[in-house]
Design a protein around this nucleic acid. Structure first.
Lengths: 333, 333
DNA sequence: CTGAAAGCGCTAACAT
DNA sequence: ATGTTAGCGCTTTCAG
């Protein structure tokens, strides 16, 4: 393994010149530059980034905290993050936390011990259960919720849920159910707000029976369907807003298994617009979050922060789209 | 930011003792240990891993090369890798290559420049189009194919494809189609081998028309369905083996759109057993790859290699499972 | 534009 | 069991 000294020797220049030739070529004469490059070629020099980063007090690495990498939505956000980070010469360390606080802490240590320069958190901020914000830790939240006390890029969750519910109302549905995430989850709270607002505007009293708690997994969506199936048909919602696509897919499975036709007897709207949703049977009407864009925006924010720059805004809201497909149809009493 | 020197001063010991207290506590007296820990607490010392890794000539980081992180199967393998790595104090750098060779090379540089100690490649080895194996780069292939010229953990792809085809045969199907990945993709080759073997054993001449080329995406699966739909009904396969679940899901969508009933008129078998497959309509019969286990095994292999140990075997084959669900039914001519 | 030299924070001989 | 000390490979003043 050759080092900068070997290159200097072969090139007949000082190590300082070699160093400059690599990190600030414009400050070196063409002649020296050529000598250095030839020498690098000759001794097969590969700079030791471990040494370089150490010296520069920068890891050129960030860590991303993901509740579950196998979730397509999260994976897509991470792709966006990774794309801009790699363009800027930064590596992305994967922190699949599996919803465990201990793992979050473990990964955060990478930042405290300088192995990473900052962190992007994909779990929404949760008062009383959040390891961020933290002094001396540069962090950005991606795809989070309202009132996140550190820089954040997200969509208007309440607005999106309201849009979807409004749409169901416009189709003539009067009893509209909702499948939520865990009740304390901020996404649940924000989206429930929009859902309730919509019903209220329409003069409909929302009913406790219409709310089924899930946990953002297909399995829990299927479970939630059971809840609605148990309600007598005359009182049962005729349409449901699911707070993500996974649960919507699970719920469809549940309803079909019970002989309830989707969408004829039960309209369903999802949230996120993951890739499989358009291939679901029926194709899912859903709120499309710009997952990759969210990731990119979060990455750019974090880079600015790492470079010590100011942020133009610290609650960056991206537009969502409402995508109508086949899982939602007019009410047919 | 305090350093080891500050700790030593406060504790009244030498920096060597502090260093040892952290990395080899058993070689330090209880008394010194306590002094050190108290001092660490007092000055809020956090070791600078950048310095430590530099000094130890090790990044304690690996990089994983993934063709597409948004693919659930890959994401699950990565989870397995990450789990093992984090238990061993190693970070996992994400290298989403988006099927671009340039990106692969970019990420491989992280190993050459010592920012990572090794690499796990999730793209199958491809003669003439592979950046691995490479001298001085410690690498393991995960979920790859036969005859990979560097350490590899995988399933028996040919055997799995044969199992699935045999099953279709046993259900009475005589015309059995297959949706492949790109024709040069080693997975395509290995699995096609099993498929052909099965037909041959049954004395059936496999027909070129029965093979539709996809590229492992839902969209290409839907496309492949079009191919089969164009074949006159009397000659059309009555069952299809798809080389992954995504394409199977796309194909089902395609057949349904054309009014062909799945599974009544067309049985379909997938490959991988990603989570959504059991929620598909109909639930997918499929080859279940032990994705997370593959990741864990690959991670353990890589760790041994990084530590300079020998491998017990360099082509590690894990068992697959054949999962029968509702997308495959007996032939009903 | 170039070179000499002083470390960055830590580990690992080596000596005690 | 502990301390002294010499770097790891690189960047970055500071002179020239």
């Amino acid at each position: 393994m050759s080092n900068i000294r070997d290159v200097a020797k072969v090139a007949g220049v000082s190590i300082a010149t070699v160093s400059r030739a690599l990190s600030a070529p414009e400050t070196v004469s063409k002649k020296s530059l050529k000598k250095v490059h030839d020498a690098i070629e000759q001794v097969q020099y590969k700079p030791n980034m471990l040494a370089r980063n150490f010296r520069r007090h920068r890891a050129f690495t960030i860590v991303v905290l993901v509740p579950n990498m196998a979730n397509t939505f999260f994976a897509t956000v991470v792709r966006g993050i990774e794309d801009v980070m790699q363009q800027h010469g930064f590596g992305v360390l994967l922190g699949d936390t599996r919803d465990q606080r201990k793992r979050e802490e473990e990964y955060l240590k990478l930042v405290e011990t300088r192995q990473a320069d900052g962190v992007i958190q994909l779990r929404p901020y949760w008062e009383g259960d959040s390891i961020l914000p933290k002094d001396d830790i540069i962090a950005v939240n991606a795809a989070g919720c309202e009132d996140t006390p550190y820089p954040c890029v997200r969509i208007d969750n309440a607005g999106a849920a309201k849009t979807a519910t409004d749409y169901l109302l416009s189709l003539g549905h009067k009893r509209i159910g909702v499948i939520t995430g865990l009740s304390e989850n901020p996404h649940t709270i924000d989206r429930l707000k929009g859902y309730r607002q919509s019903l209220e505007n329409a003069g409909i009293d929302s009913c406790e029976e219409w709310v089924a708690e899930g946990e953002f997994t297909m399995w829990s969506g299927l479970n939630a369907a059971q809840h609605f199936i148990r309600i007598p048909k005359e009182e049962r919602p005729t349409a449901i807003l699911s707070m993500n696509d996974e649960m919507a897919i699970g719920a469809i499975k549940g309803f079909r298994a019970a002989g309830i036709k989707v969408p004829q007897e039960m309209s369903i709207i999802g949230f996120d617009d993951i890739e499989v949703s358009r291939y679901a049977e029926p194709a899912l009407t859903t709120i499309a979050q710009p997952a990759e864009e969210i990731g990119k925006a979060a990455a750019n924010m974090l880079l600015r922060l790492i470079e010590g720059k100011e942020l133009r805004q610290s609650d960056y809201i991206l537009p969502y789209e409402f995508v109508v497909r086949s899982s939602s149809v007019p009410f047919s009493g």
